[in-house]
Each structure stands twice: as structure tokens, then as C-alpha cells.
């Protein structure tokens, strides 16, 4: 066998990370679709008497409920960035160390500019991807904050009421809604590029990125793993490598 095909499998994404990913995806898609409908209600069911139907109310209900799911799921992920393995660690998300910054530059050259420099074979995400997810996290926070602020005045419950301070910052609730709506577009664009890049990495590198978010495993040539681990980037500082046998979570 050629040396480059001496693969090792690595358990990268633990269960909580995978659950987070799919619940998050589902919540965002639901929020995006229902949010879109809230802005552009179709004229399909546009006849009859008001007492016979409540469909628009239900769309809003689903939107708000998914909002709670999005928030709860997000909080669990934050917890897991302290409790989980090194690939899930909070340390990865902001490129603050020299090694991370170097990797950012390298990724931009190799994956975006497509130069023929040395590819970055990250076991977790690469430094650019981690940073993108940090930005997405920020976007999530923005949607949660503006969303709950929109709910606050008509809500009896304590959680939305925590966000009554938001609307004055924007001047009016109408402004909050406009930005909340724009947030949806950012999610649409993120999702589009995100899905493309997953295809790209899966196709170009063949490390099983696509299936890793279902099963948790990535497959990588041993020498690439060694090179990557030497950078100490994923979840610095390096703990013992989690490879081979299936870990507990």
C-alpha cells in the first residue's frame, strides 16, 4: 500500500457536537422558512372567514418555538466547548495564536486562492472554518437577541422580557424587525457557502468530512495526522490523541 493511503480513523465529532449540528440546522431552516413566510405571506389560502383558520398564527408559533430550540441548543454547545474534546473546544474558535493565524493564511492561499502550496489537513475544522463558525455564533446571538426583543412586549414570560433593552438601541421595533430580517439573509448565504465547502473538502481531500458530522469519524493518512498534530492547533494545548478505539461519548 502506498504510504499516503495508510489511513487512520479519528473520532472527531462527539455525540453532543453532532446533535448540536443537526438540531441547529433544523432550527435554522425552520426559522428561515417560517420567517420568510412571516415577511411574505403567500396568497394561497387567502379566502374565507377569519374564524375558520389560524394558519398564519401557527407559522408564527412555530417560528417562536424554534427560536427557543435554537437558543437552548446553542447554550448546550457553549457548555460543550468547555466539556468536550479538543476539537470542540472554545479555544479553536478565535485565531489568536501565531500558529492559528499562520493556518488562516495558509487556508486562504490553498483553499480560496487555490495556490498549490501545502494543503491544510485539519482534523477538526481549519482555523478559517472555526472562525467562520464563531461569526455564525455571533449571528445566532444577534437573531436570538433581536427575536426575543420582538417578542418581549407581548410576552408574559421572563425570558423574552430579559431583552426589553434592545429595542431602544434600535430606536423602534420596526428597525429591529428590519435587521432581524436581514439576519435571515446572512444565514441563507452562510448555509449556501457552508454546504458548498463541505462538498469541496469531501471531494478534494477525501477525509470523510461529510460523514463525520453523522458518525463522528474522520479518516486521514497517518503522516498528515502527525503533521497536523504537530501544529498543536486543534484544541491547544494538546491532550492525548483520541484515536483508534471508540471513545465513551
Amino acid at each position: 500500500m502506498n504510504a499516503s493511503h495508510d489511513y487512520q480513523r479519528v473520532y472527531v465529532w462527539q455525540q453532543p457536537v453532532r446533535w448540536f449540528h443537526w438540531i441547529n440546522a433544523l432550527a435554522i431552516i425552520t426559522l428561515g422558512v417560517t420567517g420568510w413566510v412571516i415577511t411574505h405571506p403567500p396568497a394561497l389560502m387567502n379566502s374565507g372567514e377569519a374564524w375558520t383558520s389560524f394558519w398564519f398564527g401557527k407559522v408564527r408559533f412555530v417560528h417562536f418555538t424554534s427560536g427557543y430550540v435554537l437558543l437552548a441548543n446553542f447554550l448546550v454547545r457553549i457548555y460543550w466547548s468547555f466539556a468536550g474534546n479538543k476539537y470542540a473546544s472554545w479555544r479553536n474558535f478565535l485565531p489568536l495564536t501565531k500558529a492559528q493565524l499562520r493556518e488562516v493564511w495558509q487556508v486562504l492561499k490553498v483553499d480560496i486562492m487555490q495556490s498549490s502550496d501545502k494543503a491544510v489537513h485539519a482534523l477538526g475544522h481549519n482555523a478559517v472554518a472555526y472562525f467562520t463558525y464563531a461569526a455564525t455564533g455571533l449571528l445566532t446571538v444577534f437573531q436570538v437577541v433581536t427575536g426575543f426583543a420582538l417578542m418581549a412586549p407581548t410576552s408574559q414570560s421572563w425570558l423574552p422580557r430579559l431583552f426589553t433593552w434592545v429595542t431602544p438601541l434600535f430606536g423602534s421595533e420596526g428597525a429591529v424587525r428590519t435587521y432581524h430580517y436581514a439576519g435571515m439573509w446572512l444565514f441563507v448565504i452562510f448555509t449556501f457557502i457552508h454546504v458548498y465547502l463541505v462538498f469541496y473538502h469531501d471531494y478534494v481531500e477525501g477525509h470523510g468530512v461529510m460523514s463525520s458530522i453523522i458518525g463522528g469519524w474522520k479518516f486521514m493518512e497517518k503522516h498528515k495526522i502527525a503533521a497536523q498534530e504537530a501544529t498543536g492547533i486543534s484544541g491547544l494545548p494538546t491532550k492525548s490523541r483520541q484515536t483508534g478505539s471508540r471513545p465513551k461519548v
Binding site: P41, A43, M45, N46, S47, G48, E49, A50, W51, T52, S53, F54, W55, F56, G57, V59, P153, T154, E173
Partner: peptide, 22 residues
Amino acid sequence: YSRRVHDTCYRRPNFDAGLFVE
């Protein structure tokens, strides 16, 4: 000013039922 026009609007049942003037 504690309630929205929307919350006191007599057309509100039409909103919830998705019945809109086009």
C-alpha cells in the same frame, strides 16, 4: 403606548388566519 396597534386591531383575526388584502 404599551400595546401595539396590531394587538388592539379589530382586523387581527384576519391576520392570524392569513387573510390579507393584496
